[in-house]
């Protein structure tokens, strides 16, 4: 698992209890665990191979803890990330404010990282429209403003989850292809990371 080559680092960010781990669970293992809430401790890493247009891309997904306690070390998790999935709970407007915090953080420190805004728990809205805490158009406007893609997902039903990660992988492929065309030299993927990062994981 860990010995695999990782093409693109993807980081999950967002307030605690918005469902980042459930989203990864659904995508990687295609399951939804019902049970008492367990907060993530530190961060969890998992790699997933995804086919994109005739080739495969390995996403190295960092599922970070939303707790404030870990905020200070969040940089090590998003540094060098190609994509960041910034999650908020569709029924909790405070989580959207927190998402904006993460977007600012990324814009300041990781400008090459593509941002994907993800409203989670959309199944709760299917039950009761009035539960929506953030207007879709407001979220869309914000996404446009920061040049991000917007997704509304449900890890419980699986709605839009595969689409989200597929988009992340496709953008990565497109982006690197574009770079290869426009630059004489090959892309140095480890440009933004410490060299040991990629050296060690590609080396076996």
């Amino acid at each position: 698992m860990s010995g695999q080559r990782v093409d693109a680092k993807v980081v999950m960010l967002g307030k605690e209890y918005v469902g980042k781990t459930s989203l990864v669970e659904r995508y990687v293992h295609n399951r939804f665990l019902v049970g008492p809430y367990q907060n993530t401790i530190g961060a969890a890493f998992v790699a997933k191979v995804i086919p994109v247009g005739g080739r495969t891309v390995t996403l190295g997904i960092w599922d970070t803890a939303g707790s404030e306690r870990y905020e200070a070390m969040s940089r090590i998790y998003y540094r060098g990330a190609k994509g960041a999935i910034v999650c908020y709970d569709l029924t909790d407007s405070s989580s959207f404010q927190r998402a904006k915090f993460w977007v600012n953080e990324l814009q300041n420190f990781e400008e090459n990282c593509r941002i994907y805004l993800c409203g989670t728990k959309s199944d709760l809205l299917d039950e009761d429209r009035r539960k929506r805490g953030i207007d879709f158009h407001d979220a869309q406007d914000y996404a446009d403003e920061i040049k991000a893609e917007l997704f509304e997902t449900s890890s419980k039903t699986g709605q839009n989850v595969d689409e989200l990660f597929k988009k992340v992988a496709e953008d990565y492929v497109q982006f690197t292809a574009f770079q290869e065309m426009t630059e004489d030299k090959g892309v140095d993927l480890s440009q933004k990371t410490t060299p040991t990062y990629f050296y060690s994981c590609c080396h076996h």
Partner: peptide
């Protein structure tokens, strides 16, 4: 205690400050 208090370590690899 940390390990026994969470089942989430069973998924993937955790990397946490301690």
């Amino acid at each position: 205690n940390l390990i026994s208090s969470s089942s989430s370590f069973r998924e993937g690899e955790a990397w946490t400050p301690i």
